[in-house]
């Protein structure tokens, strides 16, 4: 397909003989908000790791705006316009909230320009502070932030970089109900003018904010489509609820599921579109 922002083709990742991804195809168009779901061990985070250069694929291609991402260092991929967050948010605790954002915002400046001191707060950073709702805490060290606030700060650090593709890895994991609510609003707002891929476990969150969903299972794409259609798909229900005779796929662990595999999805089951 032409004009796709992200094209993943037949991507595979192998860890010590274990195939974490076994030929994943994924196409994301500009402006999309795509949810990526699947039981534990399905390969969601591995897929994001492989796209962002953290993990080396064993095979297949990742093309972003037509450019091959294979073999590029993490920071080069970021500079091409792919930003991500992590499940366990990592903000720089020794720096203030503003400094965290400012550092993220300055990443395109040449290194020699960084030797100048920061004067005030740029519009970009001020805007992000407003969007993520941390304006009051701007000058506090990021170390004092709560878990939810850290996730928002991380999202803010992404926004100021104006990436063309955002990958959010479980942004609401471990959040309270109120924090989820705010994160959902934040997500809606960001998705209005960004292309976003969200990994999420939380079904309630998914129902409220997702439109298009890709389901991963055992390193392959199981189903892809609008959220209602995906929810009603028997294969998805099977993966999430487990089959009566095997009970292992309930999401308890990733390992044993491997035994049930072959029968679950028809061969080459990634081609739905």
């Amino acid at each position: 397909m032409n004009g796709a922002l992200l094209e993943v083709r037949d991507l595979s990742v192998v860890f010590d003989g274990y195939r974490a991804l076994a030929g994943v195809d994924l196409t994301v168009q500009p402006g999309e908000l795509r949810f990526l779901i699947g039981p534990n061990g399905a390969g969601k985070t591995t897929l994001v790791d492989a796209i962002t250069g953290l993990t080396r694929p064993a095979g297949g291609t990742v093309r972003f705006e037509g450019r091959d991402l294979a073999g590029r260092a993490e920071h080069e991929i970021v500079r091409l316009g792919v930003g991500r967050t992590f499940q366990t948010s990592v903000v720089f605790e020794g720096l203030t909230v503003v400094e965290n954002l400012d550092l993220a915002a300055s990443f395109r400046r040449p290194l020699w320009a960084l030797v100048r001191r920061r004067r005030g707060v740029s519009d970009q950073v001020a805007g992000a502070l407003e969007i993520i709702g941390l304006a009051e805490l701007a000058d506090r060290p990021a170390g004092v932030l709560s878990h939810g606030q850290r996730q928002w700060l991380e999202i803010g650090m992404l926004i100021v970089q104006a990436p063309r593709l955002l990958l959010l890895d479980e942004p609401v994991a471990g959040m309270s109900a109120a924090e989820r609510e705010r994160t959902g609003e934040l997500l809606t707002r960001i998705a209005a003018d960004h292309t976003v891929i969200v990994i999420e476990h939380d079904m309630e969150f998914l129902r409220r904010y997702a439109s298009a969903v890709t389901v991963l299972h055992e390193g392959r794409v199981l189903v892809e489509g609008p959220v209602d259609q995906v929810r009603d798909d028997p294969r998805v229900q099977e993966v999430y609820l487990g089959r009566p005779r095997e009970g292992a796929a309930g999401g308890a662990t990733g390992g044993p599921v491997a035994a049930v595999t072959a029968a679950a999805a028809p061969p080459g089951g990634g081609g739905t579109e």
Binding site: T52, A73, E74, H75, V78, R79, G83, R84, F86, V90, F92, E93, G94, L95, E99, D102, L103, A104, F107, R108, L114, R118, M157, Q161
Partner: peptide, 18 residues
């Protein structure tokens, strides 16, 4: 600031594009 960020989270700094 970047130097301190590298000290405290070198891997994260990569994903800021540095």
């Amino acid at each position: 600031r970047l130097l301190i960020a590298v000290r405290d989270g070198e891997d994260r700094v990569r994903f800021l594009g540095y």
